[in-house]
Amino acid sequence: MADRQTGLWLDGLTISHDGGLDLAIDAHVAPGAVLTVMGPSGAGKSTLLAAITGTLARGFAQTGRVVLDGRDLTGLPPEARHIGILFQDELLFPHLSVGGNLAFGLPASVRGRAARRARVGAALQEIGLAGFEDRDPATLSGGQRARVALMRMLLSDPCALLLDEAFSKLDTGLRAQMREMVFGFARDRGLPVVMVTHDPGDAEAAGGAMITLD
């Protein structure tokens, strides 16, 4: 049995809506490991992610706990949880430049204009987009946008990573590349990953435990 003081622990988590039970899950994701959640539409996959990020809509009731690295997140607002999430749309802020998007993710503790610019520049280099600081995100290709979204999230120093159908819009070649990149970053940084997907290929690439909701 893994040590539950590290990683992401969904401790007897149940979510009900209007009195009816939506889902019940008890799982532990070790640092660097991937938990794949599959299941048909409406099985509560998005609800599960909303419970973990703390963005459940009104009308949902939650019991049990979400514990990250031994820290009980239940009741914390989303911004205090340090949980990164990637959606199938990149959701780059359209009013900010590429560099601005990355800087938005960078914590305020990185002080000074020059230091922040340097961090953003290095991050862009890391994803093969050196010199893209002032670009309009709307002018990037799909693969470039996906990488910027990933790096924006990593810069915010998350302690866990959620993937909400994150690869489903990419074409096959790009998809394999992005998977490798995301899982690689997660392994290197020891981030527990919860991945919601329809695609058995995603599960295969992740190679971790799998839960099917119904």
Partner: peptide, 15 residues
């Protein structure tokens, strides 16, 4: 699109 808000919150931004 509220997901922009969720994405921003996940990056640590307050409401």
């Amino acid at each position: 699109d509220r997901r922009f808000g969720i994405a921003a919150a996940a990056l640590g931004a307050s409401p």
